[in-house]
Design a protein around this nucleic acid. Structure first.
Lengths: 194, 194
DNA sequence: CGCTGCCAACCATTTAGTAGGTAGATTTTT
DNA sequence: AAAAATCTACCTACTAAATGGTTGGCAGCG
C-alpha cells in the first residue's frame, strides 16, 4: 500500500462514481494522479484489478462506518438515520455510490466484480436487518414491520435517493427523503414528535 | 420513424439499460440490429443524438403508461402500486431504468441529455405528488404524510429497488419492497388488512 | 546486487465519425 | 407518360483519436 497506490484508488473511485466504470480511462486516471498511464499498470495490471481493489476498499470503509455507527448510537432509529447520512455525503460531493454505479453497468462487468458488489449489498441488508430486529425487540420501532423486507427497502430508498437527488434536489431533498424513511419505521407518536 | 430507426432505438435502449451509455458502441448496436455501423450514423449522426432520441421515446412511453394507470385504477394506493409494477418489468427482464442508468454516468454526459433526464424525474415526481394529494383528500392514504416528500421517496425506493434487486433478489424481492412501500402510505388498518 | 516505482515508446484494437458511392423509390419537370 | 432530378437507406472503406495493455529501461535505495 504505497502512497501512489492509495492516491490511484482515491482518484479512480471519484472517477467511477462520477462517470461510471466504462466512462473513465487509464489516461484520465493518469492525468488526475499526475503519473503516466504505464505506471498505473504497475500497481493495477488490468482495469479489472483496479475495480476489484476499489470495491474491496469501499466495502472496508463501509464496514468501519457501520461499526462506528453502532458505537455512536444506541437506538435503532438513530442508527438507521446515521446509516442514511452516510449516503448524504455522496449527494453533497456529487458522487454516486460506487457499488450502485457498478451494479448499473452490471452486464458488461467481469463476473467476480459482480459477485463482490452483490456481497456489498447483502452485507448491508444483513446489518440493517439486525438493527431492525433489535429495534423491534426493544420497542423502538413500529411493531408489525418485517425486518427482512424493510432492510431491503431502506437500502433501496437510500440508493435511489442518492441517484436521483444528486442531479435533482441536492442534499436538502435527500435529507427530506431520509427523514420520511425513518419516520415510516418508528411508532406513530414518536414520528409525530419529530 | 422508419422501421430500422425504431429497431435501432429498441436495441440501443436494451444495450444502454444493460451496459450503460459508455458501455456500448455503435459496433455493438450495428451487430444487434444487423446493419453496418455507418448506417446508424445515417439515422443518428452522433451518439448524443441517439441518446436524446432514446430518452424522448422512453419518456413518451412512460407518459402513456401513467395515463393508462389513471384510466385503469381509481384509488391512489392502487395507482401507486401500478406505478411500481412498471419498474417490476425491468427487474424481470434484467434491465435498469434508462434514466437511472444515464443519471449515474451523469458527469460524462452532454448537458442537454442531463436536462432531459432531470425533466423525466421531475415529471414523475409531479405525477406522484398529484396522486398522493388526491388520495389524501379522499382519505385513501394515511393522513399526515407530505405529498412532496413522499413522491420523491416513492421514486427513490423504486429506482433503488430496481437497481439492487436486478442483481440480487429478483422480481420477488422487488415485489416485497413495493408491497412494503405501498403499505407505508395507506392508513394503518388498511395496511394490516393486506 | 536486486527490488521498487516510474517512464517513454510502442502495440493491436476499438472508438465515434466521415467520404463517397450505389440501388431503389419518389418527386418534379417536360 | 417519359425523363430528369432528388431523396432515402444503406453500403464499403476509410480516418484520427482513444482504448487497455506491453516492453524495456532507468534512477534510487536497502
Amino acid at each position: 500500500m504505497r502512497d501512489t497506490r492509495a492516491e490511484l484508488l482515491m482518484q479512480a473511485e471519484t472517477l467511477v462514481r462520477t462517470s461510471g466504470y466504462a466512462g473513465f480511462s487509464y489516461a484520465d486516471l493518469a492525468a488526475a494522479v499526475g503519473i503516466r498511464k504505464a505506471s498505473i499498470h504497475h500497481h493495477f495490471p488490468t482495469k479489472t484489478d483496479l475495480a476489484l481493489a476499489l470495491v474491496a476498499a469501499y466495502a472496508d470503509r463501509y464496514d468501519a462506518a457501520l461499526a462506528a455507527i453502532e458505537a455512536d448510537h444506541r437506538e435503532a432509529p438513530a442508527r438507521i438515520e446515521a446509516y442514511g447520512r452516510l449516503y448524504l455525503g455522496g449527494v453533497e460531493q456529487g458522487l454516486g455510490c460506487l457499488c450502485a454505479v457498478l451494479a448499473i453497468e452490471g452486464e458488461a462487468l467481469p463476473e467476480q466484480l459482480r459477485a463482490d458488489i452483490a456481497r456489498f449489498f447483502e452485507r448491508h441488508i444483513a446489518w440493517l436487518e439486525g438493527m431492525l430486529r433489535e429495534g423491534l425487540a426493544r420497542g423502538a420501532l413500529r411493531p408489525g414491520i418485517d425486518p427482512t423486507t424493510q432492510a431491503r427497502l431502506v437500502i433501496a430508498t437510500l440508493e435511489g435517493a442518492l441517484l436521483m437527488e444528486r442531479l435533482l434536489g441536492g442534499p436538502e431533498a435527500f435529507a427530506g427523503t431520509l427523514g420520511a424513511l425513518v419516520a415510516s419505521l418508528v411508532p406513530a407518536q414518536a414520528s409525530a414528535a419529530t
